[in-house]
Write a protein that binds this DNA or RNA. Sequence first.
DNA 1: GCCGTTTTCGGCCCGACTGTTTTCAGTCG
Length: 576
Amino acid sequence: MVIDRKEAVAVLEEIALLLELKGENAFKIRAYENAARALSTMEIDFETFVRSGEIAKTKGFGKALVEKLIVLVETGTLPFLEELRAVFPASLLKLLQINGVGPKKVSLFYHKLGVTSVDELEAACKDGRIAGLSGMGKKTADNILASIERSRRFESFFHYYTARLTADQLLAALRDITGVQKIELAGSLRRFREVTKDIDILGVSEQPAAVMAAFTTLPLVAETLSRGRTKSSVVLTNGMQADLRLVAESEFANALQHFTGSKEHNVALRSRAQSRGMKVSEWGLFDVSNGGETLIPCDSEEAIYKKLGLCYVPPELRENLGEIECAETGVMPTLVTEADYRGVLHCHTFASDGANSVAELVAHARGAGHSFLAITDHSKSSFQANGLNEERILKQLEQIRDLQKDLKDFRLYAGVECDILLNGDLDLDDDVLKQLDIVIVSVHSGFSRNKRDMTERVVRAIEHPCSRVLAHPTGRLLLRREGYELDWDVVMAAAVANNVAIELNCNPLRLDMDWRLWRRARDQGVRCSLNPDAHRLSHFDFVRFGIGFCRKGWLTANDIVNCWSTDELNQFLGHP
DNA sequence: GCCGTTTTCGGCCCGACTGTTTTCAGTCG
């Protein structure tokens, strides 16, 4: 039995949760969590990684973890995990997902009441058994019931786009409250995580009590979970949780840094501070080198990083995935900005499954200040999307050439989003593809093939001489459908060798290729094409946040073909 | 369980809020 990387990550994560239930040392638990996280971002063949001994040289994998993972690779099972599973039924892990219920409570409920599932916990809350436990009371039981109800009523995660628009609405409402001097977004939304659980907002006010009162009674707020002087939590009408923290002006920079996270980034920063005789928290940076606690004033996030011997780390990069090591060198990449973006290379008209005409899309793109636009409707195999056959594509090509004649300082490219067939062939005749300015290739069928077959299929499409962009390369739909697996080493190498860009599709459901892969792709020489995959004019707005995901992938304007001049792009497309 | 220029033991990031208790444990981020 072969254990792959994903399975190993799942094993480590499960061990961490079970150890929590067991009440193990928190640092031991963290060691498993860190190892799982490290492994999940590595692009390695897990078995080779373990067998070759490479694992033992990797930070975070000590003697105990290496030994366990060797057993896992060699036998396909891990007795250590089996023993833990025998102590706690697997269903207990689900209880940990209930807000306000942590390992201690789960363990208590299990041992005292035999509770093993959410339904049983609900029953125990209702019939008074929970309130009867020592240390628990009626309020605890009521809160657990409310949490269970909330988790059933709403999915716990939201797509970035939904969450961000909700957050922007909330920010605007908060800025209108009397006594609010400053309001900023923090947390995972500021860091551009693709899905998010809650909205974290940080504010400055000299009248925190009044502001908290106003916040918890906003029309957007459905329910107040907690309300303190510096922190309040609410559930919004759409089911999202939002937290507001208030601090004094002098504390703002430190608080913003702290509440932007990630947790892992902050742990690393605090550890760094400690090793330099300092202490960092949401309240400030302190010199603790001579036993006391002397505040080191920081009026900006830049100042905090500087005092810690680092250059500024943009929020998108704060995941403790190498950004601190990079900041230590004094040189950070100049990340792409919204102003660098010059045009969309993937959109649909009503000829296939879009809502607008070519002319409408052109007008919209020009209105947005873009320099070029590529029309890329679906090809004939995507019949569910009314894909175009050779004849219809050629007709559209003619229409586009006509439109171009009247366009000054704007390049309109004729293209197609051509289906990659099961064997890796493209869906349209070569002599038609050759006439187009840009051919985007993508998979829309046969998602369940295995990794090897999918890799071969995609690489074959990349190697087609007309291919220029590989679109939404895994086909994932966030919170709905896993993407198919690809051997990224092979796919990226093929993309570089054949001068094919890989798309970062910024449709909020896709965000595909994932930000975690981009730094590595860029280092290998892969070009990115950032596209909204627009099916209507409003989808052009996806680019605004798409830029954030490019930044999260460490990309500069130079790495993204959509940020190039029309001349440079023409050269890339082979159409001077 | 990991780690090491105070190095093989003894550290390991920090604080707010809640609910239950009279000083604190659990949870969360």
